[in-house]
Design a protein around this nucleic acid. Structure first.
Lengths: 144, 144
DNA sequence: CAACTATCTAGATAGCTGTCGAATCAGAAG
DNA sequence: CTTCTGATTCGACAGCTATCTAGATAGTTG
C-alpha cells in the first residue's frame, strides 16, 4: 500500500499537539517553519517534502464550514467560539472539531479567557499560502 | 444527517463534466464565476454559498500529490501527463484521478494533442485564491 | 485494419473525515 | 463545595477518497 509515496518526517506547519493554550511562548516564531518555505507555484515546482508540509493548510481550508469559520475569524480581531458556533446548524463538538483542524494547520490560534475561548487568525500563515498562489511577476507564459 | 448545513446549488468553479477537451469555446469566460467572488478573508467573512463554491479549490490543493502536480504544471507553460506521472511512485490511473480533481476544481485545463494530453494552469483561479488569502492592507488588527 | 502507446474509466477496497450524542474539563457564580 | 455554562474530548458511524488492477478509449504507425 503506497498511499502517498512519501516517507518524510512531516514537521507540521504549526502547533498540533498543544491541547489548549500553550502558544504563549513565541507564537510567531514556532509556526512559520513549514508554511514559509517556497517560491510561488507558478515559479518553481515544490519538492515532495514541501508539498507534504504545505498541503495540510490547504486541506484545512478545503471544507466549506472551515473556510467560513476561517473567514469569520480572520475578518475580526478575534472571535468567540460561541459566536462562531451560532452561525452554523452544526453541533458544538463539530464546530470544535473544525476549529481544531484549523488550529492544527497553523491557521488560527486560540486563547481561553474566563469562560470563553477566543480564536485569532495567524496572518503569517495566510501570507505564506497567498504568496504560493501569487501569479508570476513576469507576463503570464501561456505557451512556450 | 445534516452533513454540511448547505442547501445551495453549488455552481462549481469550473469545467467538471467535459470528458476530454471541450474547453475550446472561451476558457477564461466560463470559469471564474465562482472563484472570482470575494473580498480577502481578512476583510469580510464569506457567506455559506461563497464558502461552498470556494472550498473545493482549496480542497483540491489539500493533497500533497495534487499540490505538487499543481506546482509542476504551474511552473511551466504546459506539462505532459507522461512527464508528470514519472515524477511520482504512483500508478497512471491515480495520477489521472488527481489531475481530474484539479481540473474539476478549475485549477487546470487539459488539451489532447496527438497522443499526449497537456495540462496548463488557470492563472485566474490562482489569482482569486491568492487574493482571498491576502492580508489586510491596514495594519494587522491583533486586538480590539 | 492490426498493433502499439498514452491516457482515461470502472470497480474494488482500506483508511480518512464530518457528524453526532454522551461524557468530560474549565471557570464563574451561588 | 455544588451548580451552571461554555468548550473540548471520546466513541461511533455513514460517506468520501486515494489507491490499485483491469479494461476501455484515442490516436499514431505499420
Amino acid at each position: 500500500m503506497l498511499k502517498q509515496a512519501v516517507s518524510v518526517t512531516p514537521s507540521l506547519p504549526t502547533a498540533a499537539q498543544p491541547p489548549t493554550g500553550q502558544q504563549a511562548a513565541s507564537p510567531e516564531a514556532a509556526n512559520q517553519s513549514a508554511v514559509a518555505c517556497c517560491a510561488p507555484l507558478s515559479v518553481r515546482a515544490l519538492t515532495t517534502d514541501q508539498a507534504v508540509n504545505l498541503a495540510p493548510a490547504f486541506k484545512a481550508l478545503g471544507d466549506p464550514v472551515r473556510l467560513r469559520l476561517m473567514s469569520m475569524i480572520a475578518s475580526v480581531p478575534e472571535a468567540c467560539v460561541c459566536d462562531l458556533a451560532s452561525a452554523f446548524d452544526l453541533s458544538g463538538p463539530t464546530i470544535s472539531h473544525h476549529l481544531k483542524v484549523l488550529r492544527d494547520a497553523g491557521l488560527v490560534e486560540s486563547d481561553r479567557r474566563a469562560t470563553w475561548v477566543w480564536y485569532r487568525a495567524r496572518p503569517e500563515a495566510f501570507r505564506q499560502l497567498g504568496a504560493l498562489l501569487a501569479p508570476p511577476a513576469d507576463p503570464p507564459p501561456t505557451r512556450n
